[in-house]
Amino acid sequence: MTAHAEQTAQAVPGAVQAVPEAGTDRFDFVLGLADDALVAAQRLAQWCTHGPEMEEDIALANIALDQLGAARLLLTYAGELEGAGRDEDALAYRRDDREFRNCLLVELPNGDFALTMAKLLFLAAYQVPLYTVLASCGDERLAEIGAKARKESAYHLDHASLWVRRLGDGTDESHRRMQAAVDEVWPYTHELLAPDPTAPIDPATLRVDFDSVVSGVLAEATLTVPETAWKPDGGRSGVHTEHLSYLLAELQVLHRAHPGASW
């Protein structure tokens, strides 16, 4: 899979260099990655003290911390690209939902543990090849962030795969729940990989990796991909589900209640 991603990286060697110098394209692109990580971190952090076993509380917190760490680096860089003096907190705490660029998948509520693992599997299967390509891109900052985040995402993918296999091929109940989770989340994966030839990295180029990883895991887990023509999207242009506004209300409540305060 990593090999795949590396091939992808080589197949589109000029991808990132093709971006116009600075400008909103790259800002939007980086912001999208940052918001994916931030919103994913916030959802995973909501699991804390609710995990199905104490060990899993620790594991989910680790993954949340990884996503949060990547979000901070990416937001900081996005702020620099924008050049308007916004730091990580200004971007995280003082934008409204219409200004967020994350994909819809990450903002979906946690649901049960199966739903969370389905979301994590699809997110990681997208982030691993994405960060792998970034790691060898021409933008030094993104390459640095990609190199770090790629290893973390590989662990997230491992963790999600491990649980999807166990839940899919565990008990009747866990199989039923895991299949229902895949059915529910699957339509949202289209947005992750929707072609965008103008983007610094065209998400469509990640599909080969994504498909091969996901189909392998689902097959081992005795699960199937649902047949549906529904392809919800809008996150990348700031048109979200109803859930994001609530998530941000919680995330931002304290910060916004004390304008100008330091913490």
Binding site: E53, E55, I58, A59, N62, D158, H159, L162, R166
Partner: peptide, 20 residues
């Protein structure tokens, strides 16, 4: 020590618990 259903989970749990 720790608890886990199988070796694969045990190894991951060990990573998260003892090498933070």
């Amino acid at each position: 020590s720790l608890h886990a259903a199988d070796a694969e989970l045990a190894l991951r749990n060990a990573r998260d618990l003892y090498t933070r």
